[in-house]
Simulated assay, not measured.
Amino acid sequence: MKKEYSVIPESMRNMEAYGFSWMDFVTAIPSPLFVVTSYKSNGKPNACLQSWACFNGSPRGFYAILSSVNKSGHMYQTIKEKGEVVLNFPSADIYEKCTATIANNGFDNDEITLSGLTAEQASSVNAPRIKECFLNLECRYLWEREIKDGDTHVLICLEVVNVCADEVHLDENVQGRYGEKGYLYNVHYPINPENFEGKSHDWIATLKKLKDMGEY
């Protein structure tokens, strides 16, 4: 039997939502994890672990849509100042180092190096990329907008101008982009709204290919 929710369930009324909608936690739709890197105004690398994004393209280009960027954070500030960033996709073996960027976020910090990772200059944009990440998308800022007027977060569109990827991850017969060594996903607070007791947390997940849909 399906349940329907158009207003916040009673069990969730006092939960800490950290700025998210209660529907985030009821749906718990996974989103890819990546680290956004750029240069701060003082030249130090900025790194921000990010999720809540989608990626799509057309014959005119390939784009990253970051759907929840805090206007008061370093990431938003550097994107607006520099207009160029790199999206770095880690595998599980370096996830803890990527989360360390959350703590090493001082304005005068090299947030990549302090977290035990290696910064290298991107090829096509003026931004650092993380050497240990198996995929790096070099991007330029296109536009932003508030989903609703007065929001503290904005939606930002980036155009991907260069793709840098490890060979072993490109070859599905060697390692590929999926499974335990591939893309990581943020599973955001999956809770049961019928009996939520105030105890929940995020999960990290990987993606397993299920069925070959055949050739185009």
Results as ranks from 00 to 15, higher is better:
residue 42 N to D: 15
residue 30 P to K: 07
residue 177 R to L: 14
residue 154 V to K: 01
residue 4 E to R: 12
residue 99 T to W: 06
residue 25 F to R: 07
residue 90 P to N: 04
residue 203 W to S: 12
residue 125 V to N: 02
residue 15 M to K: 05
residue 102 I to G: 11
residue 41 S to P: 00
residue 207 L to K: 08
residue 1 M to F: 12
residue 165 A to W: 02
residue 41 S to D: 15
residue 94 I to R: 01
residue 116 G to T: 07
residue 88 N to Q: 08
residue 208 K to A: 14
residue 135 L to D: 00
residue 210 L to H: 08
residue 12 M to I: 11
residue 99 T to V: 13
residue 120 E to Q: 09
residue 64 A to S: 11
residue 31 S to C: 09
residue 201 H to G: 14
residue 51 S to F: 04
residue 152 T to H: 10
residue 82 K to Y: 02
residue 165 A to E: 09
residue 169 H to A: 02
residue 149 D to C: 00
residue 76 Y to N: 11
residue 78 T to K: 00
residue 24 D to K: 03
residue 98 C to I: 04
residue 205 A to I: 10
residue 205 A to P: 07
residue 174 V to K: 09
residue 147 I to Y: 09
residue 15 M to D: 14
residue 103 A to L: 15
residue 162 N to E: 15
residue 105 N to H: 12
residue 64 A to K: 01
residue 45 P to F: 05
residue 11 S to E: 12
residue 3 K to F: 13
residue 143 W to I: 08
residue 12 M to H: 11
residue 89 F to R: 00
residue 4 E to Y: 15
residue 163 V to D: 02
residue 68 S to A: 12
residue 203 W to V: 08
residue 25 F to S: 12
residue 199 K to H: 13
residue 147 I to G: 06
residue 172 E to M: 07
residue 174 V to F: 02
residue 213 M to H: 04
residue 174 V to M: 07
residue 159 E to S: 09
residue 20 F to D: 10
residue 149 D to I: 09
residue 69 V to E: 01
residue 93 D to M: 01
residue 141 Y to F: 15
residue 172 E to K: 09
residue 71 K to M: 15
residue 50 Q to R: 08
residue 105 N to G: 15
residue 184 L to W: 04
residue 144 E to P: 02
residue 209 K to T: 09
residue 4 E to Q: 14
residue 139 C to K: 03
residue 58 S to D: 14
residue 90 P to D: 03
residue 116 G to M: 05
residue 45 P to C: 07
residue 177 R to P: 00
residue 142 L to N: 11
residue 173 N to E: 13
residue 41 S to M: 11
residue 46 N to S: 12
residue 21 S to F: 10
residue 27 T to E: 04
residue 34 F to N: 05
residue 40 K to F: 08
residue 118 T to I: 04
residue 115 S to W: 05
residue 163 V to E: 13
residue 171 D to I: 00
residue 49 L to H: 07
residue 110 D to Q: 07
residue 216 Y to C: 05
residue 204 I to S: 06
residue 163 V to A: 08
residue 17 A to C: 10
residue 110 D to C: 05
